[in-house]
Structure formats: structure tokens, C-alpha cells
Write a protein that binds this DNA or RNA. Structure first.
Lengths: 153, 153
DNA sequence: CTTCGTGCAAAACGTTTGCATGTAA
DNA sequence: TTACATGCAAACGTTTTGCACGAAG
């Protein structure tokens, strides 16, 4: 991912706004792209730190906000905890299933739900701009585990 | 609302857990029931303070958590701000439309969306326990106002 | 009398900001 | 040489907690 479209996208955004390219921003983008979904600023900071010890948490916050502005990251708040960031470039909008037991997050998307949301908003005079749908419950693996320990112990 | 079912519900919960009834808890419940939807702890604290100056913010937090435990309140986080609490007793689950311009919150509920959420969860092995759907956009009044100022000057 | 509730202040937590310095343009 | 980026620490707003005291059971 040394020269993907994400880098060009960030570079373009920076040029358009007359900001400045920097090594830090590349480091943070690299780490963000390398990591799996839904990192917090703190997690990303820790991950980058192993390779680039000098980096400050504030810079990670500032850069994540920048990545969100240019459409590379999307900020989500899964269940009230700290803000999390997921890849947004070439990733369609989706909703989240969150396992209450193991914390696993599964993404899904249902066109019919999307349509109905638009309709519900329109019926009440709203124009919809964005939405977030979060379903909390227990995933299959955790239910199986719970079933086993109930019957087995 | 001096002796509604909410009071009995709280009293029952307190008795069942061998907690203690108190004047403070009544005051806070009264204020919560009297207020309109979606208060923050701080807003509720301010409202109670005019009548009961000695009350502490921490007590409001603790009591709101208690009300949530016994099903009288539901905690929602509308758009990333501080936690808000809405009435939960005899109020069906609903979702929220939030106007980005004026902050107005409209509640709605769509049985088809609910069903599809269950189905989406089940299809991925999850048992759904709760969900939150938030739609942000612009309400009719604010769109009308914006249209007027665009065309009018 | 024992346990729980309360107010206060302090701590904790995630996030933002001010400032001096470093670095890209 | 100008403006922006950075690291650090401090500030910030929200929420929780420790503690001594008061009140309910």
C-alpha cells in the first residue's frame, strides 16, 4: 500500500487546501490502512509508536480528523465508547452488528432498510443526510459457547 | 404525577434490591418525568437545582443510572454529545431523526425496519438484543428557512 | 446499629488547544 | 521566509469515584 489511491487522495486534498504533506501524515495513513477496522485514536497511536516512537497522540487525533475530512476515514461510535475510525474510501456505507460478549463487530448492509430510512425521514419532512444503525446482541460463536457451558457444566 | 406507576416501579425496584428510598431519588424522578425528552444529566441537575439547591450532580448521574436499570429511563447518545436520557416506561422503542440545523429530535418507529434488523442479525448468526438507529438530516422547517433566504436574499 | 445514599472534591477519561519549535513550500 | 505541522503539557467537558457524613431500614 506504498502508493495506493488513498495516498493520492490525501495528497490531492492537502494540495487543494494548501496544507502541507508530511512524513507524520504518511506514517499515520499507512498505519490506518494497515490496521483492521474500527481503531481508536489511542490504539492507532500505540501501533504507530512501535515503529515511530516520537509521535504524539494529538497528531494522531488531528490526522484522523483530516482523513475523515477527505473521505478516507469515517468516524463511528460503537456503543458509547471512545470514537473509532474505519476505512471509508471504496467502502460502501454499512451498519454494524456488535457482540455484547466478545466485542466482535460485523458489518452489514440492507438496501431495504436504507430505503425505508429515507422514506421514514421524508414522511416526517426530513431530508436524510446520514444515518447510523447499530445492533447489539450475541454472536453465534458466543451463543454456542454459552449453550455448551450451560448444558456441560 | 405525584403517585404514578413510575413511582411504584422505582419503589419496587428499590425494595427488591434492598436499596433505600430517599427524598433525593423522588426529586430526581419527579424532575425527570416532568421534563421533556432527551435531557442530559447536567440539564436535569440544573432544573432540579432551582427547587432543591443542595443537590449534587453526582447524585443525578447515579440516580439516572438507577432509573435506567429499572426501566424508567433509557440512555441515548444523539450524535456524539453527552449522554441523554429519555422516558422508557410505557414508551415503545423508537428511533430518532435529528435535525443538523436546529437540533430538533423527532421520534419514529417503522415495524418493517425492525423486522429487517432482526433478519439481518439472524442471517449473520446474531441474536439481536437492542439496536439504535439515528438519522441525521435537515427538518422541513429548516429547509424552508434555508430556501427562503436563498431565494429572498 | 448497620448499610446505603449524599455532597463535595478529586480523579479519570477521551479529546482539544496553546505554545514553542520544526519543517514543507 | 512564511505558514503550516508537530510534540508536549495543559485545558476541557463529561462521568466516575473516594470519603466523611447523614439518613433509611
Amino acid at each position: 500500500m506504498i502508493n495506493g489511491p488513498e495516498k493520492r487522495m490525501l495528497a490531492g486534498f492537502i494540495a487543494a487546501r494548501r496544507l502541507k504533506a508530511s512524513r507524520r501524515r504518511e506514517d499515520i495513513l499507512d498505519a490506518f490502512l494497515a490496521t483492521e477496522r474500527h481503531v481508536t485514536a489511542d490504539e492507532l497511536h500505540a501501533a504507530i509508536r512501535s515503529r515511530h516512537p516520537g509521535i504524539g497522540l494529538a497528531t494522531v487525533y488531528r490526522t484522523l480528523k483530516l482523513l475523515a475530512s477527505c473521505g478516507l476515514a469515517r468516524q463511528v461510535t460503537l456503543g458509547g465508547g471512545p470514537a473509532r475510525f474505519e476505512h471509508a474510501f471504496r467502502h460502501r456505507h454499512h451498519d454494524h452488528l456488535i457482540c455484547r460478549v466478545c466485542g466482535r463487530v460485523v458489518e452489514f448492509s440492507d438496501p431495504e432498510i436504507e430505503l425505508r430510512q429515507e422514506a421514514a425521514a421524508a414522511a416526517r419532512g426530513f431530508s436524510m443526510e446520514e444515518h447510523s444503525l447499530e445492533i447489539r446482541g450475541v454472536c453465534g460463536a458466543c451463543r454456542a459457547k454459552a449453550g455448551r457451558s450451560r448444558s456441560g457444566g
